[in-house]
């Protein structure tokens, strides 16, 4: 596989972008940072598919497409199915020798939002992982159905207000905890599973390259800060993602072969989660005296999870 250099940003910047501007994602959306980074990681041919979500509806607004590679527009749940189907077709045609360029390396990548990964496309994703195709699935996790007006998904963390789990006099927002998708995918026995963040561009690029290189189904969950539904200023996207990784709300780690866990980023100063919550409008109600217990619950969950990750890294289980 032809890998492009990610030694430093200057070398990385000599890549030729294959994701074009004038898509209609919100200003300051982290989705396109992640997609651009993936497409700059390699100069192999790419076959991409996207589940319905912000990314799909914004990058293929008829009559325009923002993709300079093969890209499949497919239903809400089956990007994983479409891309694995293409992968099998490519394998067969390669065997029969009917491809235009039989030796050209091709990588298969599916994108999904958190709604289509955690909820609607979960069965399809799980099936594709079980069948063991050689593809990479990237979840752009912005913790709600941002495309349709910010409804709750099973990726929405506890305490966040969404349009279908609103905070008010009787509620502090969503009451259920977030699904641990990374562990679920690691339990499928996938050779490479990771959670990455766009502010740590190097670990993200490395993770993407590793996933593309690895044969077999790989899953990557990426943090995609949503300025519209998380309610912060568009210019602060990277700042909010910094807070998310430094407060360990989104720890950056990888799991190889379902058991070998490596933490990829250890913050020098771990921030209290209040700072992350305070920077976003969707958590504003938690700072009322009657909701203080929710912040304490979030903090204790984060501490427990970080402790678990560190133990797993040490024990290699």
């Amino acid at each position: 596989m032809a890998i492009t250099s990610i030694k430093n940003l200057k070398e990385f910047s000599t890549n030729n972008d294959r994701f074009e501007g004038a898509h209609t994602l919100c200003p300051g959306c982290a989705h396109s940072m992640i997609v651009r980074e993936l497409m700059n990681c390699t100069d192999d041919n790419l076959v991409l598919a996207a589940n319905t979500g912000c990314l799909e509806v914004s990058t293929a607004v008829y009559p325009y497409t923002s993709w300079d590679t093969s890209w499949i527009h497919i239903g809400f749940e089956n990007a994983a199915t479409a891309v694995t189907g293409s992968e099998v077709m490519h394998k067969v045609r390669k065997r029969k020798g009917t491809l235009k360029d039989n030796d050209a390396p091709v990588k298969f990548v599916a994108f999904g939002g958190d709604g289509s990964t955690f909820d609607i496309g979960f069965q399809w994703l799980s099936g594709a992982m079980e069948r063991g195709h050689d593809f990479t699935y990237i979840c752009l996790d912005n913790e709600n159905y941002a495309n349709t007006g910010g409804q709750r998904s099973s990726a929405t963390p506890i305490g966040a207000t969404t349009s279908t789990a609103q905070a008010g006099t009787h509620s502090y927002g969503k009451k259920e905890k977030k699904k641990d998708i990374v562990s679920i995918m690691a339990a499928h026995g996938a050779p490479y599973v990771a959670q990455l963040a766009p502010n740590k561009w190097k670990s993200m690029a490395k993770g993407f390259q590793k996933a593309l290189e690895t044969e077999g189904p790989c899953f990557i969950n990426t943090v995609s800060a949503c300025c519209t539904e998380w309610r912060f200023d568009p210019k602060d996207t990277i700042h909010i993602t910094d807070l998310a990784t430094d407060s360990l709300m989104f720890p950056v780690y990888e799991i190889i072969e379902g058991h070998e866990l490596n933490i990829l980023y250890r913050p020098k100063n771990v921030m209290p989660v209040e700072e992350y919550l305070n920077a976003q409008g969707r958590y504003r109600h938690l700072f009322k005296p009657e909701n203080k217990h929710v912040i304490e619950l979030i903090q204790s969950d984060i501490d427990k999870y970080w402790d678990m990750l560190q133990r797993r890294e040490e024990a290699r289980v």
Partner: peptide
Amino acid sequence: CWVWCPDTSIISRDKQMLGIDYDHCKGCGI
């Protein structure tokens, strides 16, 4: 700015920043 621009609007050639593509920039300020 090149790596984090969400709109592919930073024009960079040979490790040098050349300018901004004002047709694609949405003014997010990142």
